[in-house]
């Protein structure tokens, strides 16, 4: 059991990242260390420019840290990897592929035979409730449907770690709530580590075991807040409301 318990475990060790903007160094992350348990759901919140998306891109291997190390299941991250899948704010579907082909894309580029890839894709299309749209083109889908296809594509490669970069940020309020419940269900059923960047505090409380709060000043020590509430969570319940008050206070809001 020890071997499987390690799956999807993430360790950040003294991570630093500085960008250059108009010739000026712009530090976004400074000496950040954090352990994320396998199967945990972690939300990263903070104002824009706080480095939350940068952190996610480091985890995805799309960006390199200037200092420190990202370890996944004990091994340092060298670039993109098959044990991670990213879900972006935009669904990033290929417009010339049908829903089924898009969902199978991740497996096909990894060399999985087409029929096998499509069988697996069908399973996850069913999971996100789009079985009737397998043959549809992306342009025929609504925003929420397209994002569901993006989620199915990520799940189809059966990652240990799901990296979500404001995945519901572009959706309307109603769809967003539905999709939050769907993400919660998927996380429970698929047994993955979920790292979610969001600017929606309620979304963080609804989905996360712990919330990492970053501030725009990388000198400020990031705070980690435990969300200890039974699931699925009720947004109108007293504990939930109290947690939201607590998180908003982190940003000086009320």
């Amino acid at each position: 059991m020890t071997a499987t318990a390690l799956r999807g475990e993430v360790a950040l060790r003294h991570i630093s990242k500085t960008f250059t903007l108009n010739g000026q160094p712009l530090p976004v992350l400074r000496n950040l260390s954090l352990d994320i348990r396998g199967g945990e759901s972690l939300a990263i919140v903070g104002p824009s420019g706080c480095g939350k998306t940068t952190l996610l891109r480091l985890l995805a291997g799309l960006e390199r840290a200037d200092g420190g190390q990202v370890l996944i299941d004990g091994r340092p991250v060298q670039g993109v990897g098959t044990e991670r899948a990213v879900i972006y704010q935009e669904p990033r579907l290929l417009p010339w592929l049908t829903v089924l082909e898009n969902v199978a894309f991740g497996l096909e580029v990894r060399g999985v035979p087409r029929s096998l890839a499509r069988d697996r894709a069908r399973r996850y299309i069913r999971l996100v409730g789009l079985s009737d749209f397998e043959g549809a083109w992306p342009r025929q889908l609504s925003g929420g449907m397209a994002q569901r296809v993006g989620i199915a594509r990520a799940l189809t490669v059966q990652p240990e770690i799901l990296l979500l970069d404001e995945p519901l940020g572009a959706l309307d309020a109603m769809t967003k709530l539905t999709m939050q419940e769907e993400l919660e269900r998927i996380w429970r059923e698929e047994n993955v580590t979920m790292i979610l960047v969001t600017h929606d505090l309620e979304e963080a409380i609804f989905l996360a075991d712990r919330v990492l709060v970053l501030s725009r000043d990388p000198g400020t020590v990031p705070r980690l807040i435990e969300v200890d509430m039974p699931r699925p969570r009720d947004r109108s319940e007293a504990g939930f409301v109290e947690m939201r008050r607590l998180l908003m206070a982190e940003f000086g809001l009320h």
Binding site: A85, V86, R92, L94, W96, V109
Partner: peptide, 27 residues
């Protein structure tokens, strides 16, 4: 570029990115 990055994040090689993203997008 975002589509290319998406393909790369799934481990697509340069040739796969060309064949499956750049070429159809240019048609």
């Amino acid at each position: 570029r975002k589509l290319i990055e998406m393909a790369r994040s799934y481990g697509a090689t340069h040739l796969q990115v060309f064949r499956r993203v750049i070429l159809p997008a240019s048609v």
